[in-house]
C-alpha cells in the first residue's frame, strides 16, 4: 500500500542516502523511496536525483528489483534531473533508451525537445513541440515547453504571448498564472502581474505563497495617491499570517512596510491607522524583534534601523 509522503520523510530519506557511510553506495531501497517521494511531492533535487538515480539505473540489481513501469518512470525522472545539471551525454543515452521502448509516445517527444533546449538548439526543440501539438492540440506539456523555449531565447514577449494562448484554454492552471505573473514582472508590467496573482489566489486560496506574492505586488503598485492598495495588501498579509499560524516573517515585514507607508505618505484622513491596524503593527514589530533576538541578534540593529517599526516599541 502506498503512503502519504511528508516533508519529514523526504528529508530523512535524503539524509540516509547522502550519508551512506564509508564511501559506500546508498542501498537500492532507500534510493527508490527517495525518487518516489520526489515524484509524488513534485520536489526538484536535480543533483541528488541525478547522482543516486543514475547509479540506480546503471546497476544490475535495478533490472531485478524494479518492475517495468517504475523503471521507466525513474528513467524519465533521472533524465530531467540530468538536464537540470547539464549532463547532456548521460541524458542523451537515457532518451535513446526511452525512445526505443516507447517509440510513439508524446511524453518521450517532450523529453527529446527538452534535450534540444538543453543543448541550446531552440529551433529543433520548437519543431518537436509543434509536431506534438499537430497531433494533439491539447497537450499541456508541449504548450508549456514552447513558452520555455521563448523564455530560453530571451524573447519574453513571445513567451508571454504563448502563455496567454495556453491560459486562454487552460484557465485553471495556477502554476501557469504564476509563471505569467513573473514574466510580466520581468517586463515591469505590475498591473498585469497583479491580475495573474489574483487568478492564482482564486484557484488555490489555501496556499499562502500566492497571497504573499499578490500582497507584494499590491504594495509595489501603491503610490501616495492610491494608498487603498496598500491597505488591501495589509489584508492579504493578514491572511498569510492566519494560514501560516503567525509564523511568516515575510508577511510581518510586508505588514510593517505597508502600515508605515500609509502612516507616513498618506494625506489627511487616509493616513490614520485604525485601531486594529495599530495593534497589528505593534504585534508584528514585537514578534519580529523577538524572532531576531532569538535566531540572529546580530541583525537586530539593522531591523531597527529600517525605520518601519512603529515608534514606541
Amino acid at each position: 500500500m502506498g503512503r502519504l509522503p511528508s516533508q519529514r520523510a523526504l528529508a530523512a530519506t535524503l539524509d540516509r542516502c547522502e550519508n551512506a557511510g564509508h564511501g559506500g553506495h546508498a542501498p537500492i531501497d532507500e534510493v527508490k523511496e527517495l525518487l518516489r517521494l520526489c515524484r509524488d511531492g513534485k520536489v526538484r533535487l536535480p543533483e541528488q536525483i541525478a547522482r543516486h538515480g543514475l547509479r540506480l539505473i546503471k546497476s544490475k540489481e535495478a533490472k531485478r528489483k524494479l518492475n517495468d513501469s517504475e523503471l521507466w518512470l525513474i528513467n524519465e525522472q533521472v533524465c530531467y534531473a540530468l538536464l537540470d545539471t547539464g549532463e547532456i551525454d548521460e541524458a542523451t543515452m537515457i532518451v535513446k533508451a526511452l525512445s526505443k521502448r516507447f517509440p510513439k509516445s508524446s511524453r518521450v517527444l517532450v523529453l527529446q525537445g527538452a534535450l534540444c533546449e538543453c543543448c541550446g538548439d531552440y529551433d529543433k526543440a520548437e519543431e518537436v513541440y509543434k509536431k506534438i501539438l499537430e497531433e494533439n492540440e491539447a497537450h499541456q506539456g508541449a504548450w508549456k515547453r514552447l513558452c520555455c523555449v521563448a523564455k530560453g531565447r530571451g524573447d519574453e514577449e513571445k513567451a508571454v504571448k504563448t502563455l496567454k494562448e495556453y491560459l486562454d484554454v487552460f484557465c485553471t492552471d495556477a502554476e501557469a498564472w504564476e509563471e505569467l505573473a513573473s514574466l510580466y514582472l520581468s517586463l515591469s508590467m505590475q498591473k498585469q502581474a497583479s491580475f495573474c496573482y489574483e487568478e492564482c489566489v482564486l484557484i488555490q486560496p489555501q496556499n499562502p505563497s500566492y497571497h504573499l506574492k499578490y500582497a507584494d505586488s499590491l504594495y509595489s503598485l501603491s503610490t501616495p495617491s492610491t494608498l487603498h492598495l496598500a491597505r488591501q495588501a495589509v489584508g492579504y498579509y493578514s491572511v498569510v499570517l492566519d494560514l501560516t499560524n503567525g509564523s511568516s516573517v515575510h508577511a510581518k515585514y510586508g505588514l510593517l512596510c505597508c502600515l508605515d507607508a500609509i502612516r507616513s505618505q498618506g494625506r489627511g484622513s487616509s493616513s490614520r491607522l485604525t485601531e486594529d491596524e495599530q495593534k497589528l503593527a505593534a504585534k508584528c514589530a514585537r514578534e519580529l524583534e523577538a524572532d531576531y533576538q532569538e535566531k540572529c541578534p546580530a541583525l537586530l540593529a539593522h531591523l531597527r534601523a529600517t525605520g518601519i517599526l512603529p515608534s514606541g516599541t
Binding site: 502519504l4 511528508s6 509524488d40 511531492g41 499560524n245
Partner: peptide
Amino acid sequence: ASKKGDGTIEKELFSPESL
C-alpha cells in the same frame, strides 16, 4: 496545511495516485 495545538504547522502532501 493544518495547524497543530502547539502552534506548529503540519503540511502534508497528498498523493492522489497513492490514495
